[in-house]
Design a binder for these strands. Structure first.
Lengths: 213, 213
DNA sequence: TTCAATTTGTGACCCCTTTCACAAAGGATG
DNA sequence: CATCCTTTGTGAAAGGGGTCACAAATTGAA
């Protein structure tokens, strides 16, 4: 298949396939058909095949896909076969919550630094949970620490008014991936990637659906 | 314009417009054109007008839209002009995080109950943050408490293996809106609404974008 | 070896969303 | 009141993603 721009929806589904395949692998299943995987992920079987076709041929006609191989291939496509090192900026309600309970993240995503601008928070504030605690540093040190600790993704949990400022700092520090939890649009230059996670938007969406049956 | 099924993307954008309009309202701006709003929300101007056209005519030709009025209209459309009462089920890492984070939610979304199945967690475990602490109750009381406290939305933060079980309980308790944080698909009957929030998926998405520049 | 059964990969079609472009409508000015 | 300017609302066109249906490939059995 000729390569073209890959739909974002395809990437999201690959992530789902990956999760299902992981379960299947652990369950000892060796081969899976597009139809089986589709049922499990609640999508169309042709969709599964087409999604995969963007990246190559992974199946065997008349047989299906080898679970383990396909899982590895998808992880390689997604880039989720490596460890991603992340920094969290903004130790307010959400920030400290995420930091304290950071172990909810998948194995390959690690928060290895935390920053804030407010001195009182910075002094001696550490997460008390399992695993290594992450000390909260002053935002001034972002640039140097980002390089030292090879940060690749920044989690922005500041108030909305500061989100763009922090985004700029991250960009300047060479952090190419930004996950923005602050309910405001941020802009990043070419080559940098910003994704939004707005609970507000999702809740509004749900509220709309409930209000309009 | 004739009414038809409204795209989900439209609803998401309305949520964005609403946020921008709120800022504008606070800034004292009285009138806004579709072009201005579009720039601010980083979408196409025709898109703004078409999104609004699904629900009626809100503007004045040659003038634009009255900020305050449009904001109210959109809130009415989204159903975000009322208070939504929510329950959180599953007090693990993420659950406790969200419970602490709850004051960060918009005014009109309130967590008014929390549940878990694990007795040790249930005994005296409360969030220590500002505002009224929410006591964690045993999941057995979900049905009665949901009715008492008029719960309309359930936040599922259990391990994936329990997500569907909890979803069923919520459905049985008449909770029509479900927000699922557990990385697994859940199914709900006609008339109920389930939305997923998978950090994993969003991070995978970002990882993909970073891996494939 | 041949034939039947199975399942992939993909071209073609369809539907939905977005963008374009313009007529219609309101406001301002003289 | 007439004219000009601005901006909305919307039909039409374009673009993209999803589904269908089938040829190609593989396996297994006769």
């Amino acid at each position: 298949m000729k390569y073209s721009k890959i739909p974002e929806a395809t990437i999201r589904r690959l992530s789902r396939y990956s999760r299902c395949l992981e379960e299947m692998e652990q369950a000892g299943e060796e081969v899976v058909s597009s139809a089986q995987l589709a049922t499990r992920c609640m999508v169309n079987a042709a969709q599964v095949r087409k999604d995969l076709a963007y990246f190559g041929e992974f199946g065997i006609r008349g047989v299906g896909y080898y679970v383990k191989d396909l899982h590895n291939d998808i992880k390689k496509i997604l880039g989720s076969n490596k460890e991603w090192r992340m920094a969290l900026i903004g130790i307010g309600n959400l920030g400290s919550a995420l930091l304290s309970y950071k172990d909810f993240l998948k194995q390959n995503y690690k928060i290895v630094a935390a920053f804030d601008i407010d001195p009182p928070k910075v002094i001696g504030r550490v997460s008390e949970k399992l695993g290594k605690p992450v000390e909260v540093l002053h935002i001034n040190h972002l640039k140097e620490v980002a390089r030292e600790r090879r940060i690749e993704i920044g989690l922005i949990t500041t108030p909305p008014s500061e989100a763009q400022v922090v985004a700029n700092l991250l960009v300047e520090a060479g952090v190419r991936g930004l996950l923005n939890f602050a309910p405001t649009q941020i802009v990043v230059p070419e080559g940098f990637m910003a994704k939004d996670v707005f609970f507000t938007t999702i809740l509004d969406n749900l509220a709309y659906l409930l209000s309009n049956p």
